[in-house]
Simulated scan of single mutants.
Amino acid sequence: MTTEVRINGRVVTPDGIIDGHVAIAGDRIVEVAAGDPGDGHWLLPGFVDIHNHGGGGHSFATGDPDSARRAAEFHLRHGTTTVLASLVSSPYELMREAVTAYAPLVADGVLAGIHFEGPYLSAARCGAQNPQYLRDPSIEELTELVALGGGAVRMVTIAPERAGALAAIEWLVEQGVVAAVGHTDATYEQTRTAIAAGARVATHLFNGMPPVHHREPGPVLALLGMPRVVVELIADGVHLHDGTLRFAAAAAGPGGAALITDAIDATGMADGAYELGGQAVTVTGGVARLTTDDGSPGAIAGSTLTMAAALRRAVRVGVPMVDAVRMAATTPAAAIGLGAQVGALAPGRRADLVELDADLAVRRVLRAGTWLATS
């Protein structure tokens, strides 16, 4: 018989906060109930990061399975119990190699899946994506990648204005792969057409998109608050002003916004020189930018964010705790089709839990019923 273990604290559920306990049996949650809150530490579902390029000095973008495993382990120690391995624009050969390398990690539960952020993106809004690899969407490429992954490919970001984009979005949806809109120069109308074709995620809303104009609303207003579309928000104070974060969270609502890290290998590391998609990156003061010849600030190149830090910032700018937790776990889990398995402290879900102290710093992490060391 499996022994039941109770963890006491301030339990954050999608519906509210309960002073009580979460009961675990094996790798499942069996009960969430009011009672003795114990030391009153916060109990949250494990974070779900659907856009992450690496961390702890290790990268998902290279196709190296050992590096990918170590990057996942780094973020796991910081509370992320479910993570997509996001790759940047690259040659097709590297895309194939990455799927082959990462499919076993997905099968083992180390990764929740693979996210291709490119190469089917806009050259005008490529940001830190390597422009030499950008190209129109290819259903031929996608067919091979999806088949090769055997379910490992979970999300693909596409600029809807590129030739063949709508057909690719429709094809992805038919295969059960999430189609995301991002790094795009599309008009409002083109973006709405992509949504009609089945696109359901906005890749880091505002970033890699034209700014909002009252006569040319562009992709941001086409995506924000749209039913069934989840907008990704990078809550690091660099990609988004705190006022923008607060506004977008309110406009999308907790069921329509997902906190993400967009983290790179420099996360948790010292300032210095790094690399992303074949391009040099310089991290200064924790901010990652493409390295330029003249030393001027280059394009923002991902972040050095953890999901725990993103949650703290969201709460600090005024997002209610329950809503922030939904944005950090429940909503992103649902966005990638894992809402019935992870993302909430509820009976039947996998026993993924993050315990935070009064300052919202990570104290302990539980994944599939097992406590892990934190750093």
Rank of each mutant, 00 (worst) to 15 (best):
V88K: 04
D15E: 15
V5M: 06
W42G: 06
G16N: 05
A85Y: 06
I50L: 09
G118W: 11
T2P: 14
I24S: 02
L134Q: 10
V22P: 02
T143C: 00
D36A: 02
A101E: 11
P65L: 08
F47M: 01
L105W: 13
L44Y: 11
S89R: 03
P65K: 09
P104D: 14
E141K: 06
V110C: 12
E141D: 15
E31Q: 05
H115K: 14
L134F: 10
R6L: 04
M1V: 09
A85G: 07
P14C: 02
E97Q: 15
A112G: 11
V83C: 07
D136K: 06
A128L: 10
V11Y: 00
H58P: 02
S122G: 08
I17L: 08
P45V: 04
V146M: 07
T100F: 03
G54H: 10
V48C: 14
L84C: 12
Y120M: 06
G63H: 06
D36P: 08
H51R: 09
N130T: 12
T2E: 01
P131V: 14
L43C: 02
L87I: 05
S138Q: 04
G20S: 02
I17V: 15
T13W: 03
D36W: 03
Y133W: 15
L148V: 07
D15P: 00
V146G: 03
A72P: 14
R96D: 04
A33I: 08
A61T: 15
M1S: 11
A71D: 13
D66N: 12
G57T: 06
D15W: 04
R77H: 13
I7T: 03
R69N: 05
E31N: 03
I7W: 06
D136Q: 10
